[in-house]
Each structure stands twice: as structure tokens, then as C-alpha cells.
């Protein structure tokens, strides 16, 4: 790993205020993200997993500065960006780009593919050597689409092809960091694999750095170098992909992994399954102490009172638990 990470996030928080009453006074806050820290080295892929409502998408949107953090810092290439104004942020946007989940709603249906993929050039006032059209066609080819489809509209493409259009738009300005929020979850299995392979090829070819947000643990394992697990706005475990999947140390990670259905009928009887009961608590009113303790089978009295801090147990591996597994 290089000395200065490309992206460093420390103590990031996002609280959404809840207003009530005649005077619309703030009565509470939804703690969507409550103190998240991690770093991503250049050329690396960090996977961000967790159940819905754990704050993974909010984290991604804060890195993109689509949401303003309540507290904490985001450092990109050694530069603090969490407090930059929109105008100062603008030149940086070409370095940080996003891939969206839903290829149906993230493309304007009234624009042609050419103008969708070419839009970043106009917005950032970038002169291309052989004109924008040529640049767009090269991008379309790069993501495996026919460059002759330049004048077609999004509805003429299938879901997988639309996701490729979105990826072409993301790549237009040669970004350094790409935040991909559930890039394949809206696609069919066979198409999912095509897009996952494409993302990996592009990373090798262009030296991209990814933050991949997903709830599908097997896709995340396939694509990531390191994986961070989130629960109720906090990070519970972060480790190398191989370590995390073979020896999970946080009980939640362990439960999450054991819940993934395995496509092998022979294994369904032997497998040790941890059944978590109940649902994720509301981030409006998180439980005191360790946020996972009401569902944890190892919980002790200490867990209900003291918040465990994310601490490095072995190099590159941090766990937030009072009684981690070994």
C-alpha cells in the first residue's frame, strides 16, 4: 500500500434532523452515519456491505459530496474536501465519479446516448482532440457497446447495456476514484457477471480506484481487495477480503456470511447457520452500547452500556466488538 491513501475518511457523520410541532423544532436526528473511518489506497477496491438502512449509500453520497457531512473529514489526495463550497468542489468532480444503481432512472430518457455520455465534456469545458463525438464513440467501444449507437435513446437498450452507458459516462473524464452504488443489483445474473468483469477490466486498464457499495456479499468478495462491514451507521469490521470471508471476527459479519444461500444442495444440511432474530433497529433510536447487542448471541452486560471502538487487532484488520471471534 502506498504511503498516502487516495481517499481517507475519518469520523464521518451524517445526522438527518427530524422536525415536529408548529415551530418545526428539531426533536430528534436520524443517525444515518455515525462515525465512520476508512481509507482507500490508489488502485484498490474497497467493498462496503451491510443491510439496508446501515448507512452505506449515505457514506457513498458524502464522499461524492452529494450530501454534506454533519461532522468528520474526507481527504482526497491529501486535500480536505468535506467543507469545500460547491464552486470549489466543481473542478474536483472530474476526479471523483459515481455509478448509480438503477440504469433505468439514472439516464435521461429524452437525450441520446451521445449527449448523455458527452455531457461531462461540456460541463467541465474539456476540449477533446478529435471532437466530442469521437471521444464518446471511443468510450462506448471501451465499455463494449457499438459506437454506431451514438444517436439512440436509452429505451432502445437493455438493462445491462444501459448500465454500460452509465459506466461510459462515468469514465468520460478519466476519474481517479469511482463510487459505485449497487452497480449490478438491478441486473440479471448473467448480465451481472458481464458488468462485474467489465469493471475489473477497466480497473486494470485505467488504474481506477473503486469504492463499491453493495448488499450482495458474493459480488463484493469477487470484486474487492478490502471489505468494510457496516451496521446501523457504524463500521463493525474492516479487513482484507480473504481474511474477512474466511475468518470473520465480528459476530455480525459471521451471521451475515452464514445467511448467504449457497448454490450447493449437498451443503444445505451440513452448513452451520446463525439465525439472527428480529430486524435492524431504527437509526432514529439506536440501542445504547454496541448497536448490534440486541441481536447478538454473544452479548454480555458490558455490550449494552459501552460502545465498542473500531480497533486494529492485527495489521490491516479492525473490529468493533468487545468479544470478537478468533
Amino acid at each position: 500500500m502506498s504511503s498516502t491513501p487516495l481517499l481517507e475518511v475519518t469520523g464521518l457523520q451524517k445526522h438527518f434532523p427530524v422536525h415536529a410541532g408548529l415551530l418545526r423544532r428539531q426533536v430528534a436526528a436520524v443517525k444515518a452515519v455515525d462515525g465512520v473511518s476508512f481509507s482507500v489506497a490508489k488502485g484498490e477496491t474497497l467493498g462496503l456491505v451491510g443491510e439496508s438502512g446501515c448507512g452505506k449509500t449515505t457514506t457513498g453520497r458524502m464522499i461524492m459530496r452529494l450530501l454534506d457531512p454533519t461532522a468528520g473529514s474526507i481527504t482526497f489526495e491529501g486535500r480536505e474536501i468535506s467543507r469545500l463550497s460547491q464552486g470549489r468542489m466543481r473542478p474536483l468532480r472530474r476526479d471523483i465519479q459515481m455509478i448509480f444503481q438503477d440504469p433505468y432512472s439514472s439516464l435521461n430518457p429524452r437525450k441520446t446516448v451521445g449527449s448523455i455520455v458527452g455531457a461531462p465534456f461540456h460541463l467541465q469545458d474539456i476540449k477533446t482532440e478529435h471532437g466530442v463525438k469521437r471521444a464518446v464513440q471511443e468510450l462506448l467501444e471501451l465499455v463494449g457497446l457499438n459506437p454506431e449507437h451514438y444517436n439512440r435513446y436509452p429505451h432502445e437498450f437493455s438493462g445491462g447495456q444501459r448500465q454500460r452507458i452509465g459506466i461510459a459516462r462515468t469514465l468520460a473524464l478519466k476519474p481517479k476514484l469511482i463510487v459505485a452504488d449497487e452497480p449490478v443489483s438491478a441486473l440479471d445474473v448473467s448480465i451481472q457477471a458481464q458488468v462485474v468483469n467489465l469493471l475489473e477490466d477497466l480497473q486494470n486498464e485505467l488504474g481506477l480506484t473503486y469504492v463499491v457499495i453493495a448488499h450482495d456479499l458474493s459480488v463484493v468478495r469477487h470484486i474487492s481487495d478490502r471489505v468494510a462491514v457496516m451496521y446501523l451507521g457504524r463500521m463493525v469490521e474492516i479487513a482484507d477480503q480473504a481474511d474477512l470471508y474466511t475468518r470473520p471476527q465480528h459476530p455480525y459479519t459471521k451471521a451475515l456470511l452464514s445467511a448467504v444461500p449457497v448454490p450447493d444442495p449437498a451443503a444445505r444440511k451440513e452448513r452451520e447457520r446463525i439465525r439472527l432474530t428480529g430486524d435492524v433497529p431504527s437509526p432514529l433510536n439506536p440501542p445504547p452500547g454496541c448497536p448490534f447487542h440486541p441481536r447478538c448471541w454473544k452479548a454480555q452486560p458490558k455490550c449494552a452500556t459501552e460502545v465498542p471502538v473500531l480497533s486494529e487487532r492485527t495489521p490491516g484488520r479492525s473490529v468493533a466488538c468487545h468479544f470478537p471471534e478468533d
Binding site: V189, S190, Q192, A193, V196, L217, S218, V219, R221, H222, Y245, L257, V260, V262, P263, D264, A267
Partner: peptide, 8 residues
């Protein structure tokens, strides 16, 4: 079967 990444 070849399309899906597998945890096992």
C-alpha cells in the same frame, strides 16, 4: 452457474 460468484 458460471455467472455467479460463490462464497463456498
Amino acid at each position: 452457474l458460471g455467472s455467479m460468484p460463490r462464497l463456498d
